[in-house]
């Protein structure tokens, strides 16, 4: 049965089954649909710098695309740094508020957009961690029992929790270096730009961090090797 046309706009007609009272689809008018899809495809092909310029002009689709592209990575950085999802979401939101605020002043080519995003996210995390240094001591969860779990899933979960505890116990800048290079896949040069230190300093932070992690996770090695 041909669905009823229930609502119209300039670009699209909503298709609804009036018997069920639900919208079952959207049909684009001739020409407009193709235009819309073409516009989105053209936007997707744009580099971050171009999208930022469109964001400054108030282009909603460009804002959405920038969020889709970079929000997961910003959440990942913040999650590793902060150790919990709630703080990570606050940091990620703040990162994008900075993007919206600075979009009009963004100078293409001066810095890589992803590096700048990582720098903002890392600095926000470091600031928050600095403010809550005293709280952090109490907030680091106690290690789980040494007893292995009854099944592999539980064992994996315990290992994951121990790694998280070991990561959170690192000094914040060491954790930032590990997060950026190991988890976010930044090169040593990009990590150095993000943290605004030399490549040698990044390497030093990483070396100390991995030694500390290896020491605190020494008892877990056998589980990984199984």
């Amino acid at each position: 049965m041909r669905p009823h046309l229930s609502a119209k706009s300039d670009d699209a007609v909503m298709l609804a089954d009036n018997r069920k009272g639900i919208v079952i689809g959207v049909e684009f008018k001739k020409g407009h649909g193709r235009l819309s899809v073409a516009t989105n495809t053209a936007l997707s092909a744009k580099a971050d710098d171009e999208l930022v310029a469109l964001v400054a002009a108030g282009n909603e689709a460009a804002c959405r695309l920038l969020v889709d592209r970079h929000l997961p990575r910003m959440l990942a950085v913040a999650r590793r740094m902060m150790g919990n999802q709630a703080d990570a979401e606050e940091v990620a939101q703040e990162v994008f508020l900075r993007v919206w605020t600075h979009a009009a002043r963004w100078e293409p080519g001066r810095a890589q957009f992803t590096t700048w995003l990582h720098r903002v996210a890392t600095n926000l995390c470091l600031d928050r961690l600095r403010r809550h240094t005293m709280d952090d001591i109490d907030s680091i969860p106690e290690p789980m029992s040494e007893e292995p779990g009854p099944d592999v899933m539980l064992e994996q979960q315990q290992l994951s929790e121990r790694v998280e505890i070991a990561l959170q116990a690192l000094p914040a800048r060491q954790r930032a270096a590990v997060t950026l290079t190991h988890f976010q896949g930044l090169t040593n040069i990009e990590a150095a730009e993000t943290l605004e230190i030399s490549v040698e300093a990044v390497e030093s932070l990483l070396g100390r961090a991995r030694r500390a992690l290896r020491d605190s996770l020494a008892t877990e090695r056998d589980r990984v090797l199984r």
Binding site: V67, Q85, L159, E164, V178, F183, R210, E220
Partner: peptide, 28 residues
């Protein structure tokens, strides 16, 4: 061995619709 252990660290959950809505609401 250390790399493999680090890779078991908990990952961030996917961005919630609420978070995306809050970010988009503040857009220019």
């Amino acid at each position: 061995h250390l790399d493999l252990m680090l890779d078991t660290a908990p990952m961030a959950e996917p961005a919630s619709d609420m978070l995306v809505s809050r970010i988009m609401a503040a857009r220019p």
